[in-house]
């Protein structure tokens, strides 16, 4: 699988037009239904290669896009969501500098 290719599991004859938000591999138990004891095994089954991780982020991005940005009567919510996510992200990466601005010594 090279850059720009479809996932290896995607077969247009079976799946129809390509949906970037969809995982075409064999579905595992959804994360929300995993028992705590099986969590380790569940993570052990995950594909942790860089391309698979990038694919997971790509699918998440497209799922969010399809849900909030692409609908016909989309509102302003996705912009606020992006803003909130960016604020959190940049706060996190700048936390080392931010913490010097603390007003109280003891909490």
């Amino acid at each position: 699988m090279a850059f720009g290719d479809y996932p290896a599991e995607y077969n247009p004859k079976v799946h129809g037009p390509y949906d970037p938000a969809r995982y075409y591999g064999k579905a595992d138990v959804p994360f929300g239904q995993v028992k705590l004891g099986e969590l380790g095994a569940w993570f052990g089954r995950r594909n942790k290669t860089p391309s698979a991780i990038a694919g997971a982020f790509s699918r998440a991005w497209w799922r969010w896009n399809h849900k909030y940005v692409q609908p016909k009567r989309a509102g302003i919510a996705p912009f606020f969501q992006l803003t909130a996510a960016a604020m959190t992200f940049f706060y996190a990466i700048n936390y080392g500098k931010m913490r010097h601005h603390r007003n109280y010594k003891y909490h």
Binding site: P12, K13, V14, H15, G16, P17, D19, A21, H66, K67, Y68, V69, Q70, P71, K72, R73, A74, G75, I76, A77, P78, F80, Q81, T83, A84
Partner: peptide
């Protein structure tokens, strides 16, 4: 496959009319 999927009415993605619901704006 596209024709077949349309005919069968399978999991072909459809553009939704309304976005997902949010509270407090986001």
């Amino acid at each position: 496959a596209r024709a077949a999927a349309t005919a069968a009415g399978s999991d072909r993605p459809v553009r939704p009319e309304h976005p997902g619901k949010v509270r407090l704006g986001f």
